[in-house]
Design a protein around this nucleic acid. Structure first.
Lengths: 136, 136
DNA sequence: ACAGTAATGAGAACCGTTGTCAAATTCATG
DNA sequence: CATGAATTTGACAACGGTTCTCATTACTGT
């Protein structure tokens, strides 16, 4: 069920710069942050271009996207190419990648049980990370 | 006893209407949807008021908030009693309630594994129900 | 009833994101 | 290398959800 679509992407200076910038940061970055970083780095890239490419990369599974608490989309180079989820701290925003075969199976099974096909699922786990919990 | 923070909330027609509308829907609703529903229901409530109250309710833990894939905030009355999830058909909207102890345990375990506490989770499973699948 | 204070509503302001479209870049060919 | 077709880019406008502003209205305790 892996689906590398026939993606026809042309390698451009901008696209490379964006991927590069992203790969150098272990943290999640917003499109605006990347745009700013590229701007001050001399190699300016249009804001719209940054958005477009990040979206495309996310669609291709090259990067992870999550929404911050205030709805901003933030991206990060994928640590694993596989399908996975995140556990997000509602205190500091720390996000940890986790995989969970059991959830995948459960989702698939419970959907099939009711005759559903082409199943997709969204799982969000949030809590307080150790540091934030201690800090309260 | 833990408690009701000294929240000085005044009971108003608007606030009640919002809570009411929310409690009648098992699904997550956006502020705009609630605003629209109240509007056509005769008892109009200002959009800003809907936003303010939903935020307040969320802050007080009366309702759950999650962000849709496109960044919109959606709210749902807290199901303190029967915690369950839904499998929603993206064709016709059919929603089936399902429970899943395995998911609950997985979420708890995976969070604890990374030192997270006060864990909450949201799980949404979507696909095409049998009818819709056949119809394509 | 009355004053004090929280809540409301209409609309403007915000801000992240997406759309527009002409100009620039890339690729495949001749 | 020249050329043309198809992508991609970028500046800026437009969008949409959310928040802010502030005058007006509705509760509350006395």
């Amino acid at each position: 069920m892996t689906g590398q679509l026939p993606t026809t992407r042309r390698p451009t200076r901008q696209r490379t710069a964006i991927a590069e910038a992203l790969s150098h940061s272990p943290e999640f970055r917003s499109a605006q942050e990347i745009h700013a970083r590229l701007a001050e780095g001399g190699a300016g890239v249009g804001l719209a271009t940054v958005y477009r490419n990040l979206q495309a990369m996310a669609a291709d599974g090259e990067v992870d996207v999550i929404r911050t608490e205030d709805g901003e989309a933030v991206y990060r180079a994928c640590a694993t190419e596989d399908h996975h989820h995140h556990v997000v701290c509602r205190g500091c925003g720390l996000a940890v990648e986790v995989t969970g075969d059991s959830v995948e199976r459960w989702a698939e099974a419970v959907a099939a049980e009711h005759g559903f096909v082409q199943v997709r699922h969204t799982v969000e786990v949030e809590g307080l990370c150790g540091d934030c919990a201690r800090r309260r």
